[in-house]
Design a protein around this nucleic acid. Structure first.
Length: 759
DNA sequence: TAACTGCTCTTTTTT
DNA sequence: AGAGCAGTTA
């Protein structure tokens, strides 16, 4: 614009108009209005597939190109790295290449980690702080509980971690938590929270939640920093606003307070992170904070067929708490949904694989057109097995993360410790890895020595010869600290790659794994080599080769690791949570069973969130949806009998067909669901259908003299109507697990329960 | 100190 | 079913 301005006024106007029309012609009217409303607070309620990402990216491009805003003045916050990368990429495509450099696009966590590197020394941390993942933080909580003599058996560490995390996400600091702690348990939790916080600081470490709340503490302590940042971030955009928690809400509000150009996009119907402290009222109450906020509603859906939207609308309409809006289709009706009914999870996976194969051959779909969703990560395993067996290329997103593997965590712990020698968690990981004969006893002695002399644990190691330890231990500690010191020196001058390869040299970890020569150890070694090549990539693709700190930050905050694939044509496997924001031509939603999806429904609110999750799954699909459930499934190493998910019944039976193409609405009532699925399945001959199969055995064991079996509808005098989930044992001791419509799940003794069977 | 054994607990979902 | 842990033994 500035250049055009030099040439002359008329030209400027023409050029601008051209760019303007160019830009905005791809948008509908509401989208366009949202894009050009650049001043003041704006909220966009964007239904699934209504072009939400498009609006944000066009707005960024419009700000840069048409309003001449410097990219550095724009802050765009997302929830996943994937979304951030996608957004940056799209802005780059929209403008000319490189336009996005200088833009602040990232997840809340990564953006604030970056900011904290610059300012955290002002609130008493060193800028080389470590970022603790949830395992690290769990271990620190366990330590804290130990020191407070609180038994881990009495209160599980996971529970405590959840309580602390929820407090942090609601920006309740230890002092406030303490003064609100009414009962005994809360007082205990408060003590742990306080000690845990202190320990984090001793370790010069932040946990994930700290990345959100430390900025708030910083802004409160140093208003001048806040003022500085408010002026840098003149335009703030937040994606998936329905999933922000209190801390995120606060930090965004603070940053936007001066210029008030806060632009939030969200969909209350897709709020699926309340368990992480996400507060749907942030979006519902946006206008209370900004009375002059403009609101736009995007309901035109460009993604899915009419049938898919009909299904989605009908599902979400059952929720009480929602802003009513129906998505309007811009595509043809499309095909009905297909219901897959299977014996068990293996059979389910087989059928999914079979459908992928035939659709690819007969209908010209590519592997990349398909996505398979599941509710829990544990379900991915069978699917993965079957895909591999059938030679279908696939990729699992965000499963057991690459970075959570032991060997990777060990290597990363070295790197973390080199950078931050107060990081005790990392030190404990590596001090005896590879084995140096430094066990718990020696560590205890060292700790004592450190405390007596008021020095740090690592200083105690460095000064081990003064401690009067056994010569063998002193030698071991000496060789350990030699390695660390050498690596520290190298970290000053060399690249991340240099440090990592020298680490492998000095410790011989790869050699040890090779020598072990088991399939597992060789796989571990391969993972380490993969890490090494990632380090090389990182050095190559970053200015000044990138710092070790940045490398570690990427690793800590990366959710999924992009495994190098031979091609990019593969079937995608992921949890429904991970699927948010994505779209695929063909979608399989698997495991649609009561107690799996929906997972647990103790509270109506929880059921509504599960339903929103199902809504997210359905609205990912562009052309075709398969819904599948299995009659039995292994969970916790035990076989369970399943009931069809209520969600299937919430879709009009006239738009669902069986695998043989019969609409559910036309199917005779009497026909057994699984029976019909079986008789019509051609390709797969179930191995399980032999008398010795678990399936057949189930029929025997589950049928009892009482006439109760999984699926039986019963009535209890006190608890009312319910459905039998499973039957355990026989005779007088027979117990039955029932999910009651009103009171939830109960296990009852058959002989006392006095159940009436409903026909 | 490390290897072995039997026990418990897990599974929501993610940064 | 599998991982992780405490307690025991070599």
């Amino acid at each position: 614009m500035a250049q055009a301005g030099l040439v002359g006024g008329a030209l400027t106007v023409n050029w601008c108009l051209e760019v303007l029309t160019d830009f905005l012609k791809d948008l509908n009217e509401v989208q366009r209005n949202a894009v050009i409303a650049t001043k003041g607070p704006v909220m966009v309620l964007a239904g699934a597939g209504s072009g939400k990402t498009r609006v944000i990216t066009y707005r960024i491009a419009y700000l840069i190109n048409n309003e001449g805003i410097a990219p550095g003045n724009i802050l765009a916050l997302t929830f996943t790295n994937k979304a951030a990368g996608e957004m940056r990429h799209r802005v780059d495509t929209l403008l000319h290449k490189g336009s996005s450099s200088g833009l602040w696009i990232g997840t809340f966590h990564s953006v604030f980690a970056r900011l904290l590197r610059n300012y955290i020394d002002l609130i008493g941390y060193d800028s080389n702080f470590s970022i603790f993942d949830s395992d690290d933080s769990k271990s620190l909580i366990r330590q804290s509980m130990g020191e407070l003599n609180i038994s881990v058996d009495a209160v599980p560490v996971n529970t405590v971690q959840g309580i602390i995390s929820r407090a942090k996400n609601s920006f309740i600091l230890p002092a406030e938590f303490h003064s609100n702690a009414s009962d005994y348990n809360q007082q205990k939790a408060s003590q742990i929270y306080e000690l845990y916080t202190r320990k984090l600081k001793e370790n010069n470490a932040l946990d994930f939640d700290d990345l959100l709340i430390k900025p708030i503490e910083l802004f409160n302590a140093r208003p001048e920093i806040l003022a500085e940042l408010q002026d840098s971030f003149r335009y703030i955009m937040i994606d998936e606003y329905q999933d922000t928690n209190k801390a995120q809400y606060l930090v965004a509000k603070m940053l936007g307070a001066k210029h008030r150009n806060v632009f939030v996009v969200g969909d209350d119907a897709q709020s699926i992170y309340s368990w992480r402290g996400a507060d749907i009222s942030n979006i519902l109450n946006f206008q209370d904070d900004y009375h002059d906020a403009l609101t736009f509603k995007l309901v035109e859906n460009y993604r899915s067929t009419g049938t898919i939207l009909k299904a989605a609308n009908s599902v979400i309409s059952r929720n009480q708490r929602q802003i009513k809006k129906e998505l309007i289709s811009h595509r043809n009706e499309g095909e009905p949904l297909t219901l897959i009914e299977a014996y068990n999870e293996r059979n389910e996976a087989e059928k999914v694989g079979e459908h992928i194969r035939t659709m690819r051959l007969k209908q010209d779909y590519e592997y990349r057109s398909f996505a398979i969703f599941y509710r829990t990560n544990a379900q991915s395993r069978v699917l993965e097995d079957i895909m591999r067996q059938h030679k279908i290329p696939y990729k699992i997103f965000g499963s057991v993360s690459f970075y959570k593997r032991k060997e990777i965590k060990d290597a990363v712990a070295y790197l973390r410790f080199i950078l931050n020698e107060r990081d005790g968690e990392s030190l404990l990981r590596i001090i005896n890895f590879p084995p140096r004969k430094i066990g718990d006893v020696s560590i205890g002695k060292l700790k004592e020595f450190a405390e007596e002399n008021g020095i740090s644990f690592y200083d105690a190691i460095r000064r081990a010869e003064e401690g009067g330890f056994q010569a063998r231990l002193v030698t071991a500690l000496g060789s350990f600290s030699t390695v660390i010191e050498a690596l520290k020196d190298l970290a000053e001058s060399g690249t991340v790659y240099d440090v990592l390869s020298e680490l492998f040299n000095l410790t011989s970890i790869p050699l040890l794994l090779q020598a072990e020569n088991t399939p597992e150890s060789l796989a571990r070694n391969e993972n380490l080599q993969e890490l090494l090549s990632m380090a090389r990539d990182f050095s190559d693709h970053n200015p000044d080769n990138g710092s070790l700190g940045d490398f570690l930050e990427n690793i800590s905050l990366a959710s999924d690791y992009e495994e190098t694939q031979d091609s990019d044509n593969y079937v995608s496997l992921m949890t429904v949570h991970a699927a948010k924001g994505l779209e695929f031509p063909v979608v399989f939603v698997t495991g649609l069973e009561e107690r799996l999806f929906p997972l647990h429904c103790y509270e109506p609110d929880e059921l509504e969130e599960e339903r929103r999750l199902f809504y997210v799954a359905v609205t990912r699909a562009q052309e075709k949806i398969f819904l599948s459930w299995a009659q039995s499934r292994y969970q916790y190493g035990q076989q369970h009998y399943c009931l069809k998910s209520m969600f299937i019944g919430e879709i009009d039976a006239s738009i669902i067909q069986t695998e043989s193409g019969v609409l559910l609405s036309d199917r005779p009532e009497k026909e057994k669901p699984v029976g019909s699925g079986l008789s019509s399945s051609k390709g797969y001959q179930p191995k399980m259908a032999t008398p010795s199969s678990p399936f057949a055995a189930a029929d025997k064991s589950n049928l009892s003299k009482s006439g109760l079996r999984a699926g039986t509808m019963v009535h209890h005098a006190l608890f009312g109507p319910g459905t039998v989930l499973d039957v355990q044992g026989t005779g007088a001791k027979q117990k039955v697990r029932i999910t009651f419509r009103n009171t939830g799940e109960k296990t009852l003794m058959v002989q006392y329960a006095n159940l009436k069977i409903q026909s």
